[in-house]
């Protein structure tokens, strides 16, 4: 008998038959993992399996390769806190959909931590959309498509302002000026976490991450970027416009 215990964040829950659920979670030490939850479709338990919820998991299977079954306990329910906020609700579904591109059973502790922080921050007062941008770039990096924002690719100074769409490397303002219409703008909040992002910076961040998600990550799995990203961005832009 193989088993492990871990904490996880619900990425999807699909009905299996009438009473059971196949649960897919991003776990701390076991990466993206799936398992059957017996009786998971019951009215009492259904709410635990909303996307983004944090669970304590105990996975068991006779053989390592089997789907296995989960015994679960609810730890935290971020989904309940965002039901009123359309942008946050869509963001929650989007980041969980995005996390499903991660390989199965390959530990991604950093991605898990980032998703845990992000799901707890959604809908709050802080600049949580900036965390969505960071999460997207984190997923890209964990899949081998990370951007190199450490120095200018053209040997310029530290005033980094662009990213090359071809290499994903940063370019300094001076070096990039002649090619500015071909380069992607690099928002300053991605260079230092203490810089508070403006809505324009976050917008530039989404353009940057969206470009590499489409051209690198989703192209590699022959899929388009999920529609829900577009819905989320639209809802966030409307919310930003209404509040300004």
């Amino acid at each position: 008998m193989h088993d492990w215990q871990d904490t996880g964040i619900v990425l999807s829950a699909r009905l299996f038959g009438e009473t059971d659920v196949i649960l897919e979670c991003l776990t701390t030490d076991h990466g993206r993992a799936a398992g059957l939850v017996k009786g998971g479709a019951s009215r009492k338990r259904r709410a635990d399996f909303e996307v983004g919820n944090h669970l304590s998991l105990h996975w068991r299977a006779r053989l390592q390769d089997q789907l296995g079954s989960f015994a679960v306990e609810s730890l935290h329910t971020p989904s309940a806190h965002v039901l009123d906020d359309r942008a946050a609700l869509l963001a929650l579904q989007y980041v969980c959909t995005l996390s499903r591109v991660l390989p199965e059973r390959e530990p991604k502790a950093n991605v898990y931590e980032a998703l845990a922080v992000l799901t707890r921050s959604l809908g709050g007062e802080g600049a949580w959309p900036a965390l969505v941008v960071r999460y997207e770039l984190g997923v890209l990096a964990s899949m081998g498509y990370g951007l190199d924002l450490s120095e200018c690719a053209g040997g310029g100074d530290d005033d980094l302002a662009y990213v090359s769409p071809r290499t994903g490397r940063a370019v300094s303002r001076d070096q990039g000026r002649p090619y500015h219409d071909k380069l992607l703008p690099l928002p300053p909040f991605l260079l230092a976490s203490q810089i508070a992002p403006t809505p324009e910076d976050i917008e530039a961040g989404f353009q940057l991450s969206g470009f590499f998600l489409g051209r690198r990550l989703y192209a590699s799995v022959h899929q388009p970027i999920p529609d829900i990203r577009h819905s989320f961005l639209q809802a966030w832009q409307e919310k930003t416009a209404a509040s300004s």
Binding site: A47, E50, S74, H76, T77, A80, H81, L83
Partner: peptide
């Protein structure tokens, strides 16, 4: 009650 329902009830 689960914490999600409680939180939203309080809200």
């Amino acid at each position: 009650l689960d914490d999600g329902t409680l939180a939203i009830a309080l809200k």
